[in-house]
Design a protein around this nucleic acid. Sequence first.
DNA 1: GGGGCCAAGTTCAAATTTGAACAATAAGGA
DNA 2: TCCTTATTGTTCAAATTTGAACTTGGCCCC
Lengths: 174, 174
Amino acid sequence: MGHTRWLDESELGAFRAFTNAHALLYPRLNHRLKREFGLSGLQYEILARLSGAPGRELRMAELASALVNSRSGLTYQIGQMEKNGLVCRRAGAPDERAVFAVLTDEGLALLKRAAPGHVGLVRELLFDALTPQQVRALADGLGEASRRLTVGTACSPPATATATATATATDPGP
Amino acid sequence: MGHTRWLDESELGAFRAFTNAHALLYPRLNHRLKREFGLSGLQYEILARLSGAPGRELRMAELASALVNSRSGLTYQIGQMEKNGLVCRRAGAPDERAVFAVLTDEGLALLKRAAPGHVGLVRELLFDALTPQQVRALADGLGEASRRLTVGTACSPPATATATATATATDPGP
DNA sequence: GGGGCCAAGTTCAAATTTGAACAATAAGGA
DNA sequence: TCCTTATTGTTCAAATTTGAACTTGGCCCC
């Protein structure tokens, strides 16, 4: 087994496309969110997740795992958002270690203002370039890859990956 | 046009999968490169690109655009790599503004040691989870998205997107 | 042969991310 | 109960990224 199976042309193309699309798409999304709403991309996602959670709040650890982000990174961002009045923290009830991030009215209002344009841009920059089959292939293939990548990692039941997902770019709701 | 076309379930799943797969995959790849070879993911890519370039050298701007990275970020990384003897800089010949990053023998040797394991990990973590159809869909769909995202941005002819790509995860060559 | 304009690379400060270390708390068994 | 282990959220310093500003060179057209 001394030899390596290098990537063939198709795989290389896919890997490139995956990397490049990400590197091109996210800075664009983030730039607009920052410019128009003072939000980073991560902050938008935090707002979206919280808006879809029961009681508009989530534990720090849940949030971090749903966002696939480090706990320390989340601490930092929640700190920023708290300064801006978009969220606040609530001490845990049964488990005293817990800290809940709670969406404020102000945070929800900002999300509602930002969401349409954001989703529109995602559609314009990404989905308008994809056929329905490609969308399905993305969801299935990369979904499976994500699932495998998550195995062995601390995480809530896979429900999180799907259920929480529904909250992100959908109508923030009433 | 006051209403927004939100993402349907399939699109949302695809978007999530795309984001999550990226957020899960890259830290894993990067961590291993750093631990075993002292390289960041970006530095590995730089080595790979240079190894496939004629004369083992590329202009800073070409490299930055091929890697979809900012010029200042590249300046920083090339600086780090220069300190470690992996690359060196060469002043431009006809165009005096140009700076070429040149792969050193040491850099090439390190790439050759790192490449098999890196490619193996990419295969294990990503491609083993994908069917050939999904690989094609990724390449086609995200390739098209990348192309559109690149329009209006300073860039060399689209050749770069494909031609340069070939150098990345392939056999570093003799 | 100057003037205006654009591109290249670097610099810098500010923002963010990373990862290890830490304090506090839960959980489970001997 | 007491000890051992795992989890939570935070803190901290170091590394990296970001984006604007700046310097220098090419380019074009008059």
